Amino acid sequence: MLKLIEKFEKAIITVLILMLFIVIAVSVLELGIVIAKTLLTPPVLLMDINKLLDVLGFFMLILVGIELVETMKVYYTEKSFKVVEAVIMAAIIAITRKIIILDVKVLSSTTLIGISLVLAALCLGYYILRKSVCYNEKTNNED
């Protein structure tokens, strides 16, 4: 029964990865079209700040998608700390993307502090995880 569950799980992850590939490919094409249209409309080769932020947000969204593929790939091949590391990295990228497209003029200071604390906690968690993995690898190599 466990073998069947593992096969089902791997099949679902495979389908999700394939669908995410399609979404990422279409998103990259759309980003290219948006950049081309923006640069070709007057004033040529210039972007206003709002368009630039939109493009950067779109770019970061694609990076989040790529990080999700990496997370699923790691989960598919091995179930270890690397999965946790990949999930934390995806969260850091997603929050960074959100920060790039935020309009800080309309948000309260407590919201900005909250976002900062979440990002700091994720970064600290990632740092601790990396340190513990590196420590464990050094210890295992010395044996």
Rank of each mutant, 00 (worst) to 15 (best):
S108R: 09
P43D: 10
V133I: 15
K98S: 08
V64Q: 01
D143W: 04
A86T: 04
L129Y: 06
A90M: 13
V87M: 13
M19W: 08
K105L: 09
A25K: 01
T96W: 02
L61P: 00
L61A: 14
L117A: 14
E67H: 06
V44Q: 11
T38M: 05
L112I: 15
M60W: 06
Y126R: 11
S108L: 03
S132D: 07
V133F: 04
T41F: 02
Y135K: 14
S80R: 11
V28I: 15
A120C: 10
L29F: 15
L124A: 15
I128K: 14
I35M: 14
E6L: 10
Y75K: 13
D143I: 14
E78D: 14
I115T: 09
T77W: 07
T14L: 12
Y75Q: 04
E137Q: 12
A36T: 07
I17S: 06
I5R: 06
G32N: 13
K79F: 13
V15W: 06
K105P: 00
M47C: 04
I92Q: 01
I22L: 15
M89A: 11
T41P: 00
Y76V: 01
L18W: 07
V34Y: 10
A94L: 12
A25H: 00
Y76D: 06
I13Y: 02
N136M: 12
L52C: 02
L20I: 07
E142W: 09
S27T: 11
V28G: 01
T96A: 13
L52R: 04
I62S: 08
N140R: 10
R130Y: 03
N50T: 10
L31E: 14
M19K: 03
L68N: 05
V34I: 13
T38C: 02
E137Y: 06
L40V: 01
M1W: 05
L45G: 06
L53S: 05
K51N: 06
L122V: 09
A94K: 08
E9D: 14
L63D: 07
P43K: 06
V64P: 05
L2Q: 05
C134S: 10
L2E: 09
F8Y: 11
A91Y: 01
Y76N: 09
I66P: 00
Y75H: 08
